[in-house]
Amino acid sequence: MTQMSMIQAIHSALDALLARDPNVLIFGEDVGYFGGVFRATDGLQAKYGPTRCFDTPLSEGGIVATAIGMGAYGLRPVVEIQFADYILPAYDQLVSEAARLRYRSGGEFWAPITVRAPYGGGIYGGQTHSASPEALFTHVAGLKTIIPATPYDAKGLLIAAIEDDDPVIFLEPKRIYNGPFDGRHDVPAKPWTDEPGSDVPEGYYRVALGSAAIRRAGGAVTVLAYGTMVHVALRAVEETGIDAEVIDLRSLVPLDIETITASVTKTGRCVIVHEATRYGGFGAELSALVQERCFYRLEAPIVRVTGWDTPYPHAFEWDYFPSPARVAKGLRQALEG
């Protein structure tokens, strides 16, 4: 075990698979010689050679299209989209092609690709460096969507994603690349060192896609969160002293529905937290699932704490970002409701 930040853990996963599987290759804008704008591929080109880790033209559509072609041929491409906000030129390739290639060809062709993209706010990135587009992918049949919240999970999930034979969207909460941000922007940022989930094996291991993790066991209310919001939710629970059960979904598709229903069946209350806009967000799906499966155990309406239904505003970052205080309010609402 070694202490790693999330970005180091992601780097370590890529390193491990480049070493292990000659069919794995990595490409994207600025990922080759430079090592990526967030350093996820730092030194990998020098270590494995220019055909295993290389720069691409500035074309997200082209990156994903060629990844699909390579994947269909038999390789395991791992591509980086520099910011999740810039994945949209590739959306047609992901939705119309990657997601359906296996289905429409009767299993003759498939796209075992992994698309990594830093996402989310809290970095003063404005409208085009802050988005949380997960619901655009969870809505699409045939795509898997993964979001880690700790370095340990980031590495294990990324390895599992790359080895998965289906297309996987791997969204990385960039606000917690270097430390577990809990929503308090006015206190000094802390590094991952000695935080839960920062002990990471140096070698190969997997965290199975489709398994949630209970970050805090409790009986009063279930909190469903992923990415940065797991840490914000834990902070809100600490501040309120409410005996909440905090579930880190980790995998949005496939979803660990058993863990969710078992918890809500136990607590009878549910708060869903995400940073993305609310309307039609992944929280809406979670809310529907919980309602369908736990209706007779629910003692209060399900509460959603999310970003507002506006583009991500530059100057109002901390009014937009769901704060521990807003999550706390949601917790109280679920308890009172």
């Binding site: 804008e29 600025d30 010689y33 430079f34 720069d55 691409t56 033209p57 500035l58």
Partner: peptide
């Protein structure tokens, strides 16, 4: 283009 030289765009 950031770290990519113009040859990377053809």
């Amino acid at each position: 283009a950031i770290s990519s030289y113009q040859g990377m765009a053809g």
